[in-house]
Design a protein around this nucleic acid. Structure first.
Lengths: 240, 240
DNA sequence: CGCGACCTTGACCAGGATCAAAATCTGTGG
DNA sequence: CCACAGATTTTGATCCTGGTCAAGGTCGCG
């Protein structure tokens, strides 16, 4: 039980057999809950299990000695936030719960077993980490070549589609439980500038954001502003 | 034969059995040569084989409609430049030969066979793509939170270590066959500013760069300036 | 009611972009 | 070996996006 969002996510990419679903669900050793603002995994850890996010939002981040922080990924339900620790061994970054998170824990021994016995499932898990990589590349281009406003628009488009893919949208509205400071750490901007950029998007009638609820008011124009094309998210269904 | 640099690279992470080495070498269907400034793979392609760089330098890049370009990775001998296309299917970016490149071609059917029959080797190939991801994350933090000078220093440190890992350094000197414009596309800077930053690093006595040959004159200070710590490159040897 | 977190605003500053032009360097054909 | 064209590097001047600093305002909560 409880592997729901991951199944949903893997099944976007390719069909899972009933046996594969069973294997995946049996790979979960326990469910844990992490409070908001707590680390799910610490930088430098050498974990022996990986964390699959079932509910809540999380962020991967790196901190510099002087306190500057960069968030390198935002995770939503269905994301395997540190599947890579299975092979990378040492965590080169921390993972923070942005909201209370419900997490399925998968021991690395189970992952190893999957790689030994279930090649197709292995490929889908591998694929999962490859999509993470594709998102990183997209963020790199957004960071390097888009204006602050465009970058913000791009980020919102992406998050909307990713949430939509796991059924966590409500019409044109998503939950966006980030402070403006955290958004700044995500986009590489100062908090002050995040605020101004958001005001601009609001003034232009592209979004509404009150409390946690962010509504996309003009999807087409938001996509244009953010130069957003969703192919990199690999949401199409193919044999893998 | 000819899988040399990849073997070298995979063996940094873990030991390969003789059989695994043989399998890997047999997976190569042919060797091809790509001229400098030619695409090795085009964005949008749906390739049926992956390219392992044996000699030369290559870059992954995305282009915007207005011609702006962002390079998201620099590849050196031993890098599997598009291993991800095995599972991602569509190329979400192009791969460009920066110099003449000698490439080993591995059909996806062979990769699929490896995933079916050689779990440990599969894990090492997966690991390869995970290290790519770790590098992307590091670039993201460098891009978001480092000054132009620090970012440049960081980039040079990384490239040096990666070349060193595959035996392509000559003392403190590496080959850096990028124009300043290409460096700008890599770091998200303008060509002009790349030039100024390089002059600063030279004036500070940190590097020398003439023609293709870049020499690190003061490794310690360069590391400090670039806030560089190499753990993310995962150059340690562990069981995987 | 009061405190702390967060958001908002304004004034000013600076890192890096842009524009333009000159200086080098490279390769090519004669 | 030279001349020349194109690419690349360098320099200077100016502009502007986004950072920094500082102060209020707002909201939720104990």
């Amino acid at each position: 039980m409880s592997g729901g969002p991951l199944l949903l996510k893997l099944e976007q990419h390719d069909r899972l057999s009933d046996e594969e679903k069973r294997v995946l669900e049996n790979a979960i050793s326990r469910i844990r809950v992490v409070e908001a603002d707590e680390d799910i995994v610490h930088e430098g850890d050498h974990p022996s299990e990986s964390n699959l996010l079932l509910d809540g939002f999380a962020a991967r981040y790196k901190i510099f000695s002087n306190g500057r922080r960069q968030i390198t990924a935002i995770h939503v339900p269905g994301d395997f936030v540190d599947l890579h620790s299975f092979l990378l061994r040492a965590m080169d970054h921390g993972v923070l719960a942005l909201t209370p998170c419900r997490i399925a824990v998968v021991p690395h021994t189970m992952l190893e077993r999957i790689t030994a016995e279930h090649p197709h499932l292995t490929r889908l898990l591998w694929l999962n980490t490859l999509v993470d990589g594709a998102i990183h590349r997209e963020w790199l281009t957004a960071m390097g070549r888009l204006s602050a406003t465009a970058h913000m628009a791009h980020f919102i488009c992406e998050l909307f589609l990713r949430l939509n893919a796991v059924g966590r949208t409500d019409g044109d509205t998503i939950q966006l439980p980030l402070t403006q400071a955290e958004l700044g750490d995500t986009l590489g901007l100062s908090t002050v500038h995040v605020n101004r950029v958001l005001q601009e998007l609001r003034k232009e009638g592209l979004i509404r954001w009150q409390g946690d609820a962010l509504t996309i008011l003009d999807w087409e124009r938001l996509k244009t502003v953010g130069e957003f094309t969703p192919t990199y998210l690999n949401l199409q269904h193919e044999d893998r």
